[in-house]
Design a protein around this nucleic acid. Structure first.
Length: 554
RNA sequence: GCCCCCGUAGCUCAAUGGACAGAGCGCCGGACUUCGAAUCCGUAGGUUGCGCGUUCGAAUCGCGCCGGGGGUGCCA
């Protein structure tokens, strides 16, 4: 549970600056935040910063000269070999090779905890995601939010948060009434009645399936029943399907929160009353409006319709009030792009009620479009022609769904080519990463068959090949990746890291023989067995964080 | 009309305002008589949509266009 190397390097850099100022080698100025970044090229070291370029103006000095003086004052640290100034004013930090080698043992000691760090200090973090109302099978787009939310939750846990996954849904709104009515009409059709099925009702086959089940179980006994009977059955069947689909992706929630609770305990209306008391609510055209424009929104919004029912905005605010009162250290919601316009109103509502919203965060992800036979598949739950998340899992499998859904940044529109996913499933990047893991498992099996003791002490200092060092560096980068993924709410960094880690392993495998029959190679062989076991640990860890399998064989 | 997101290699996408813009797929050419070839190595491929601006420095920030998507419901 240590701090990242980057953070430690930043602290050393600050010490160096202050030391240089104290000695009079640099003029006095406030030390700014030091953005240390990982070196992109090996010639730039393992870590570097360009901050001296920014300091040039304030210090009235040549940036390279500042860099040189910082380097002269840079504190000694066990993990650093050397620090260099580089034109036009960069400072590059090189990790110590002997220290790097020793980290192989640290990785093995940390095991499944490797890569963890302490950002959360044990605080609670709630992640709300999926949150689809039970009106139909989950769409591919919901799958994206689901995978992102679940993975972010894994990441938060690795960053020492106590994580709760929550699914918020509403089974009482207008859409649910239409759902019930849709089933009722299909049921009547089955009884031989001629019905006029409205365009805005749910067209999907699953509606017919539910109607058929009701017919099998009740015959025509429900002919006079009202919509609520059909709605209840539809809700329970569909919700069971949704949970089953999510389960297939390895997504399990800790809590399901029904909007009804907020109506039953009156929180919807007390929230409205408080907003009114604070002057953010007015009546017009028989409806109740939020002064959203005053709160920074583009226009005022209806909170309560003229028929007395609230719109979704009011319960959404009440729901967030409920979350805040539960006392989470962090609240994160994963939403689709269709909520981009709405969510600021929720936050504004919370602020209007006097709540701080710094720890209320949101990730918007753009839509997923599917391509089949070179043409885009238009998706609409209501129209019923769409590819469901279940079908996608059928076609490409859980691991590929998770990997692909993660491998793009949230704000990027995702184009999922179904033909490619089916035809080239064995060339899927997911296999590339898993193959590295399976390959190591195979090496270890091979070694054991030849009588090697995997736990025999090894002299890690014997590791020397550039490919070995690259592998170690990349393994150590996991913690950095977790830190960035959490602090930037960017789970997409994981698949990129996984791909890089697998790549350096495969290169190492080409360059370095682990299990050799040459007696002279026994010692280095032992060290390499430790190294590949560490690599297996790290690969398993990143696969776990992404919610994917780490196979011993493929 | 107005608001939000996106536009980067043939395709799908990366890149906390910093060093030569990087991967995968695809193309082309190589590598298995010893640990898994679902792998590796190499070649080619770019005016970061366009134009102004801010900055020592812009794919990144600002303004204006062009193109795609989403929103602009008393639906969620």
């Amino acid at each position: 549970m240590s701090q990242t190397l980057r953070y430690q390097t930043e602290r050393l850099f600050i010490q160096a600056l202050e030391s240089a100022q104290h000695a009079g080698d640099l003029p006095a100025f406030d030390v700014p935040p030091i953005p240390v970044e990982r070196g992109r090229h090996t010639s730039h070291g393992d870590f570097g910063t360009s901050v001296c370029l920014k300091l040039a103006r304030e210090a009235h000095m040549n940036p390279l000269e500042i860099a040189r003086r910082v380097v002269a004052h840079f504190p000694v640290a066990p993990f650093i070999e050397r620090v260099e100034a580089s034109a036009p004013g960069y400072v590059n930090v090189y990790l110590h090779p002997e220290w790097l080698k020793s980290q192989v043992q640290s990785i093995l000691d940390a095991g499944a905890a490797f890569g963890n760090l302490d950002i959360g200090h044990g605080q609670t973090a709630q992640v709300e995601f999926v949150s689809a109302n039970p009106t139909g099978p989950l769409t591919v787009g919901r799958g994206r939010g689901g995978v992102m939310g679940d993975t972010l939750a894994n990441l938060l846990a690795a960053a020492n948060y106590r994580v709760e996954r929550e699914y918020y849904f509403n089974n009482a709104g207008r859409q649910m009434r239409i759902l019930g009515e849709s089933v009722r009409l299909r049921y009547l059709e089955r009884l031989g009645h001629t019905v006029d099925f409205p365009d805005d009702h749910y067209q999907g086959d699953y509606i017919q399936d539910i109607a058929a089940k009701l017919f099998e179980e009740h015959g025509d006994a429900l002919a006079e029943a009202d919509e609520s009977v059909f709605r209840a059955r539809a809700e329970s069947d569909i919700f069971a399907d949704i949970r089953a689909t999510l389960q297939r992706l390895g997504i399990v929630f800790d809590a399901y929160f029904n909007e009804n609770v907020l109506h039953e305990n009156g929180q919807v209306w007390t929230t409205l009353d408080e907003l009114r008391a604070r002057g953010y609510v007015y009546e017009e055209d028989g409806a109740t409006w939020l002064r959203a424009e005053e709160l920074g929104s583009t226009k005022d919004r209806v909170l309560v319709k003229s028929d007395g029912d609230p719109t979704y905005r009011l319960p959404d605010i009440a729901y967030h009030v409920d979350k805040i009162r539960r006392g989470y250290g962090l609240m994160i919601t994963i939403l689709g792009a269709d909520h981009i316009e709405e969510y600021p109103d929720v936050l504004a509502g919370l602020r209007a009620l006097g709540y701080a919203t710094d720890n209320v965060l949101v990730i918007f992800h753009q839509f997923v479009t599917l391509t089949r036979s070179g043409e885009q598949v238009r998706m609409s739950t209501r129209r019923g022609h769409f590819v469901t998340l279940d079908e996608l899992i059928d076609e490409v499998g859980k691991d590929a769904v998770r990997y692909f859904m993660l491998a793009r940044s949230a704000e990027s529109h995702m184009d999922f080519d179904l033909d490619l996913a089916v035809e080239q499933s064995d060339r899927n990047p997911v296999y590339y990463v898993q193959y590295a893991h399976a390959r190591i498992a195979s090496i270890l099996r091979h070694a054991q068959e030849l009588g090697w003791d995997l736990d025999a002490p090894a002299d890690l200092a014997l590791l020397h090949h550039p490919s070995e060092m690259d592998l170690i560096r990349k393994m150590l980068d996991l913690q950095e990746t977790v830190e960035m993924a959490v602090s930037r709410l960017s789970p997409h960094l994981l698949p990129f890291y996984a791909q890089e880690l697998a790549a350096v392993f495969h290169t190492f495998y080409r360059d370095c023989r682990v299990v050799s029959s040459d007696p002279e190679d026994v010692e280095i062989g032992r060290a390499r067995l430790h190294l590949v076991q560490a690599a297996k640990t790290v690969l398993a860890r990143v696969l776990y964080l992404m919610g994917m399998e780490a196979p011993e064989r493929m």
